[in-house]
Design a protein around this nucleic acid. Structure first.
Lengths: 349, 349
DNA sequence: CTGTTAGCGCCTTCAC
DNA sequence: GTGAAGGCGCTAACAG
């Protein structure tokens, strides 16, 4: 029914082994023979059977990219960059790898599920992007999976995610702490002393680290934080809207709001405006990530740029073995404060 | 080295076939036996070998989702919805399917490549999203691939993409024409008579259809179009910026600009503002898609909402055989004009 | 309900 | 440089 490698061999009048060799190109084959085989492949419209190939070779061309939320440009941009480095070439059969992105939706179970599925497929590599969940049992389960993946020859790279020791996984981390410190430092430098914070989900490392940076900046400036000044939410616009509304209800004297990321910041801006306040005259707002839309909201968002595309490209290359892993298996990628119109001096109280 | 199904069988003191049966759950197995097997699986930390399974069963749990640009929220939102319907359950082994998104980057070659890769993996289903390229040879190649995929048991669904006849592929199309007609009609209703258009890539169906709708509206209102009023570009912000700059250079008397989509519209707005013009007092702007950020730009974008999440969910269900395909294999999804602040009456010339 | 028996299609030593 | 043969790990008829 379906045409197999044997059919191609018959038509090209060579052995199946030879066909396999020209297809995989890992072995010397005489030019005329190769020609003949390639022609037969073309004429028969032959397509290699991936599963059979993977079974025999004990490895596949699949590369998995795990993201927390594919609808979020943060992950879209990262995934796009990773994938561009991988989809290119270099696989076993025909020089092609199937880079696929898997959307965990932020759910630990789905994350584990995908990892298992990828392990089951004998993936060539796996790249996990974005913050991790700090829950100990889950972290242990993930660590175990990653270790096992590594043992069975799957290269594991973490991008924008903290390292997982003793798993052989290479990590490219983002300096969330430093970036947050810079953003809050900028606000403090402008004279703000009453800063609200709409943080992300409390269980994610990204949230923890950004919050830590924020607090470090406050502490360094000798500003004592009021517990009412922090609310947690998700990494989306809506959380920003609700968070800021709550914050300003609790303490209308706040003069600035630090948001978990740009999407949240945009929601914060909307809430601030709906309260009849101006940005930045009445309330300054900062974001994080510098996604494309941050330039177009009005006023432009002061934020911390993370070079997502570069980081993703690098992670992709490491996953393909085309770039050396950073020393110690961990490399940190810095953020850069970008000052735009959403921040200014605090209003005279 | 790695633990196989036979190992599990030995430990559970049953035959490999029985283990396979409890794992796939498509066959009656006595409860105590199942228990024993499951325990053995757990104790041995066994993971099914996907390739071997796919080879033997001649089908896999992989479902491919092709997108033109994963960094674009349009595709991210769609993919997320599709994937949520697929990743859930219903696969062969353990009730799980591996929904993966493949980023073609808008390249016809990559599209074909991914289709081949997916065919090679014996994917259970493939969903192609977004506009197609009209180039005849490529269209024929894609049609041939889709037909072949269908023949080998892969379900093919098109989402937001025109039908491909005689391939067995189910299509869910977006009413780009009608939506564009509504947007331009809205502008005409406000009194505009000199409308620029920053279209998308000329070779994409989406561009063609939206442009057709725009022109139909103009024709219906008896407005004759000046050839200088249309420029083509990509579906991104930058194209919008450049396109609008060019348009207003060519004809400064334009009072409105229709953009290919929301990202482009945002770029158009930036260009208009950089020219010292106000929106909508001097120039009205419309987008298309109603992506989340369209609400946050200032003024809010008048646009055509496409229910991406609903469409994606439906496509996902059809791909999984959990929802019936529309009659004739083609279903159209309508768009809805959303009027916000970016459109208003034309300035008095 | 469970065991036995054949392959699924390809890769990879070995010989030549 | 090329052919022959065995097995990768699992599933799918058949029997029983």
């Amino acid at each position: 029914m379906t045409v197999t490698l044997a059919d191609v061999a018959a038509r090209a009048q060579v052995s199946p082994a030879t066909v396999s060799r020209v297809l995989n190109g890992n072995y010397p084959v005489a030019a005329p023979t190769r020609e003949r085989v390639l022609r037969a492949v073309d004429e028969l419209d032959y397509v290699l059977n991936g599963p059979a190939s993977a079974l025999a070779a004990a490895t596949s061309d699949l590369v998995g990219i795990l993201v927390n939320d594919i609808a979020d440009p943060f992950f879209g941009i990262t995934a796009s960059a990773i994938q561009a480095e991988i989809g290119g070439a270099g696989g076993r059969a025909g020089g092609e790898r199937l880079a696929v992105v898997c959307n965990t939706g932020g759910s630990p179970e789905r994350e584990l599920k995908y990892l298992t599925l990828l392990q089951r497929q004998r993936a060539a590599a796996v790249v996990l992007t974005g913050g991790a969940v700090v829950d100990a049992p889950h972290a242990a389960a993930v660590a175990a999976k990653l270790r096992k993946l590594g043992e069975t020859g799957t290269r594991v790279v973490l991008c924008g995610r903290p390292p997982v020791p003793d798993t052989g996984a290479v990590a490219l981390t983002f300096d969330n702490r430093g970036g947050a410190r810079a953003a809050t430092g900028h606000l403090l430098g402008l004279g703000h002393r009453r800063l609200g914070c709409v943080a992300g989900p409390p269980e994610r490392t990204t949230t923890r680290h950004r919050l830590a940076g924020h607090r470090a900046a406050l502490a360094a400036a000798g500003v004592e934080e009021d517990p009412r000044w922090t609310v947690y939410g998700r990494f989306d616009r809506r959380s920003g809207y609700e968070g800021a509304s709550e914050l300003l209800r609790r303490d209308p004297s706040l003069t600035a709001v630090v948001a978990a990321n740009d999407s949240v910041a945009v929601g914060v801006c909307a809430a601030v405006r709906d309260l009849g306040l101006r940005i930045p005259e009445d309330v300054s707002v900062t974001g994080f990530d510098d996604l494309p839309f941050s330039l177009d909201v009005v006023p432009g968002l002061t934020t911390v740029r993370i070079p997502l595309a570069e980081a993703g490209a690098r992670a992709g290359r490491i996953a393909m073995g085309r770039e050396e892993a950073p020393a110690g298996g961990v490399g940190e990628i810095g953020g850069e404060l970008v000052v735009r119109g959403s921040t200014g001096a605090p209003r005279a109280s």
